[in-house]
Amino acid sequence: MLKVEHIDVFYGAIHAVKDLSIEVAQGEIVTLIGSNGAGKSTTLRTISGLMKPKSGTIVFEDKNIAGVPAHKIVASGLCQVPEGRHVFANMTVLENLEMGAYLRSDKDGIAKDMEDVFQKFPRLLERKEQVSGTLSGGEQQMLAMGRALMSRPRLLLLDEPSMGLAPLLVKEIFHIIQEINAAGTTVLLVEQNANMALSIAAKAYVLETGKIVLAGTAQELASSEAVRKAYLGG
């Protein structure tokens, strides 16, 4: 479904992502783990079109989307939930979800999907009219995910959904990610919380200073000595 091949991404002179290749098959949860500054967000931002790779290809459902502007990539069925949520804090929960459906005009479909989102995240329903800047971190994460789902993505990119959340909430969020996946959406998940990520993913990549250093099934990586030492606390 998604095939990233040999991409290089720069911030000015900083070479943040080096010759990176990853592959995500339809229906999978694939995770990309790595420590601070490894280049995980840069990779996702490049796939979703917020950044342009200097070289390499990104093929999504048989189309090369490398360098295509972000709003067109969304239209082709790929949506990213950015690190740090980035909800529109000056808008209500409802308006945020409407923005998620920006490219759609099927009123009935939108209404139905909104109901689905509220079913997944009942807390959002209670806070429908609330300005989203006043939501808690966990609620904002839910809103950011719900908003992305409103575009009906076939591939969902999640950047550190567990960031700053209490363990119980992390569990809840991960459970919902599995639910979203079970309903047919392919997921590429970036995490620092390697434990959680490996527990729900089928495949995993480990990123270090811009390079993929390990790849395999989540099981393999979870039992690998190197990964345990570096990311799973022993």
């Binding site: 502007p69 969304v74 529109f88 804090a89 808008m91 923005m99 920006y102 908003r147 992305a148």
Partner: peptide, 22 residues
């Protein structure tokens, strides 16, 4: 829709792009 998109872009342009807003 356009007005809401204006507010979205002025609040957070990158997030707006991720919604498919040109």
């Amino acid at each position: 829709k356009v007005g809401k998109a204006m507010r979205a872009v002025s609040f957070d342009a990158d997030a707006a792009r991720l919604m498919g807003i040109d």
